[in-house]
Simulated scan of single mutants.
Amino acid sequence: MMKPNTDNLFTRLPVVFALAILCTFLWGSAYPAIKTGYALLAIEQHDVASQMVFAGQRFLLAGLILLVLARLLNKPQLKLTLPKFSQLAALGLTQTTLQYIFFYIGLAYTTGVKASILNATGTFFSVLLAHFIYHNDRLTHRKLLGCTVGFAGVFLVNFNQSLLDFQFSLAGEGSIVLAAFFLASASIYGKRLSQKMDAMLMTGWQLSLGGAALLLIGYLSGGHSGEFHVASVLLLIYLALLSSAAFAVWSVLLKYNPVGMVTIFNFLIPIFGSLLSALFLHENIFEWKNLIALVLVCSGIYLVTRKAKPAL
């Protein structure tokens, strides 16, 4: 097991906890921020092309911010050979373009509370995929229980007031779950690439390439940038900074600490996403199904990411 360097600021538990919570707060805030962006930019629910333009602007800007930050931090620059560029493009097209096509469409057709809970399926998909790809990351009884509990929560949140009324649309909830699956799949590929190149540079390039592809797809499909004014520009900048800052901090935490110590905080993302959606979008989080689903999903994430205690 990797032992943290106690002389490093980023290994001190109060700092680790504070920064990990900050990252999950930022990621959770994306749900109400995106839906607010639709309203500020006058992007209609069915205007998929303009939603792609909005997403492309965000991620292209986020990628450029990371690349500039990497330059300021004197990161070793990537020599973009054709094989490396092809790998980065493949990662960008799956982890950013493909994932966020479905994520932005899904968020237009469902609530922020529901989307934040459904998107947590990415953690469970990652565990299941890792079982078939990595020989040293097999499913355990604890992980299997965590996935079962988590998916039970996701299943529950799709019921209406009555357990006899199941509401699940492919455009809304289906797109969010599909986006989570693409993210889980691309993350495994990204993990392999990160062994050969700097993680910050890798993410900066994949966000830039994926964001540019989203922007191009949106414009070619007839999308528009929306009605830009001070509030919408500030929101777009916030969303871009959210992605770049959260990744930069998260990658530093993973570098200096055991992975399990950091990833355990992932259970906070659906909590922050639900609470902030309730606060800013005036959505109802206090329905019994939402509360129970949130508890089940967070419990599932805790179970699959918690590091097992060594046998005495």
Rank of each mutant, 00 (worst) to 15 (best):
K3A: 07
K3E: 06
N5C: 02
N5W: 01
D7N: 12
N8T: 07
L9N: 12
F10V: 05
T11I: 01
L13N: 11
P14Y: 08
V15K: 02
L19A: 04
L19V: 04
A20T: 13
L22G: 10
G28P: 00
I34W: 01
T36P: 02
A39F: 07
Q45S: 03
H46G: 03
H46C: 01
F54L: 04
A55N: 06
A62E: 09
G63W: 09
L64S: 15
R71T: 15
L72K: 10
K75W: 07
P76K: 05
L78S: 07
L78A: 11
K79A: 06
K79D: 04
T81H: 04
L82P: 01
K84R: 11
F85S: 13
S86E: 14
L88Q: 08
L88K: 01
A89C: 13
G92I: 08
G92V: 13
G92R: 14
L93R: 07
T96K: 13
L98R: 06
Q99Y: 11
Y100A: 03
F102M: 10
F102E: 07
Y104M: 09
Y109E: 05
G112W: 01
S116H: 06
S116N: 11
I117C: 03
I117V: 10
G122E: 00
F124T: 11
F124V: 11
H131D: 11
F132C: 03
R138V: 11
L139H: 07
L145Y: 04
C147F: 11
G150N: 14
L156A: 00
L156D: 03
F159T: 00
S162E: 03
L164P: 00
D165N: 14
D165Y: 09
Q167R: 10
S169W: 01
S169M: 03
L170D: 02
G172T: 03
S175H: 02
F181T: 05
A186K: 12
I188K: 12
Y189A: 12
Q195Y: 05
Q195R: 02
L201K: 05
M202Y: 00
M202T: 05
W205T: 07
S208I: 01
L209C: 13
L209P: 12
G218L: 12
S221W: 05
S221R: 01
G223V: 14
G223I: 14
H224C: 07
A231T: 02
A231P: 00
L234A: 08
I237H: 01
Y238R: 04
L239F: 03
S244I: 09
A246W: 05
A248W: 13
A248L: 13
V249E: 05
V249W: 06
K255A: 05
Y256G: 02
V259A: 04
L268T: 13
H282R: 14
H282A: 15
K289M: 12
A293V: 00
L296A: 15
V297W: 12
V297Q: 10
C298M: 15
S299R: 05
G300D: 12
G300Y: 15
G300F: 15
I301C: 15
T305L: 09
R306C: 06
P310S: 10
L312I: 06
